[in-house]
Design a protein around this nucleic acid. Structure first.
Lengths: 182, 182
DNA sequence: AGCGATATGTAGCAGGTGCTACAAGGATAA
DNA sequence: TTATCCTTGTAGCACCTGCTACATATCGCT
């Protein structure tokens, strides 16, 4: 036995990578351990049980998502709500974000079903996205707080429709909104 | 061995009931079979394998969802888009719809991950909801088709935020939309 | 040097997983 | 009656599941 001892902190990054690639639902200890270069035995030792592991992992993933949001975009503001929306939807379509988007719906599902740790992680991510959205609102927006919430609702609806193959429906819907530049 | 032989059709209702209660993710053959009063052996016999079973089950669930939509609401039209939205969101909050709402996010997650059968079921449900929504649009709406798509996007975003404990965020967002009666 | 706490490897347990082999019941057709 | 097919029950297989018992190595402390 050698080198730096494992710890929750050192284990979480490879675990998160594995979950981002393969999902949460089918995640079981032995594949997770293999991805982290350890054994299931050690995962249980460091996290206590699987439930805690998943909770900690979700919290960690929420953290890197938030950090990615903060770092991901410059400070130039959009001029209209419509531009903000377009910018964010374009960002969500980036290939780099894809594993995240896919995982996101699993987190929502777990949250809806009340699985431990899921709602906290999902709520945190929403909060961060909302906060970030507020900073992106046009400077002359009459109601930046409310507008950010409105856009968030539209964004999530659009993403959901995209996830089930109805991206076009959402696109056509946005054209019929007050955002379409009428 | 006795009475009416089993068939896919006779098996699907109890299977759907079980899945609506316990979810799709952890659904395994033996509990499913028990819920249907049979053995895993017979489920495989009638459906071939688990994947086909789940696909057929999703299709069936999409069907009963559609039927529920058709039967669920009267024909009196709302006068404004806002009223349509409020009516639908109220319907979604009904306790009877809760198992459906919870299952829905699992279907979305499976659809996003590309699991077989999920996208078809999710797409079908969206299509039905959209069609139904179009019939509910105000008679004097300038763009019923686009408006229905716009409302669908808002609805799904609102439901998602609700699923992760941010119902309030969505509510405040809707107040900042053009629907708020300004 | 000795001791206790921490960290890890090896083996294994009881139970669950999808699925299959085999046999047999019952209905139907010849 | 006999043959055939459809349907079902009983056992079981190989594998995976989370988790644990036990032994052992390593490190800091006294």
């Amino acid at each position: 036995m050698q080198n730096t001892p494992l710890s929750r902190e050192s284990l979480l990054p490879p675990l998160a990578a594995h979950v981002l690639e393969h999902g949460l639902g089918g995640a079981s200890l032995r594949p997770l351990a293999k991805a982290a270069g350890t054994s299931d035995r050690m995962l249980i030792y460091h996290f206590g049980n699987k439930e805690t592991l998943i909770s900690d992992l979700l919290e960690y993933i929420a953290g890197i998502y938030s950090a990615g949001l903060d770092a991901g975009m410059g400070t130039e503001r959009a001029a209209t709500r419509q531009e903000v929306l377009a910018k964010i939807l374009a960002q969500g379509r980036e290939p780099m974000m894809q594993p995240f988007m896919i995982l996101w719906w699993e987190i929502v599902a777990g949250s809806a079903r009340g699985l431990p740790g899921y709602k906290e992680a999902a709520g945190e991510m929403m909060e961060r996205q909302l906060a970030w959205l507020e900073t992106q609102m046009p400077v002359d927006d009459p109601d930046p707080m409310g507008g950010a919430r409105y856009l968030l609702t539209l964004i999530e609806g659009t993403l959901m429709l995209g996830a089930v193959g109805h991206a076009r429906t959402a696109r056509e819907g946005l054209l019929a909104s007050d955002l379409s530049g009428d």
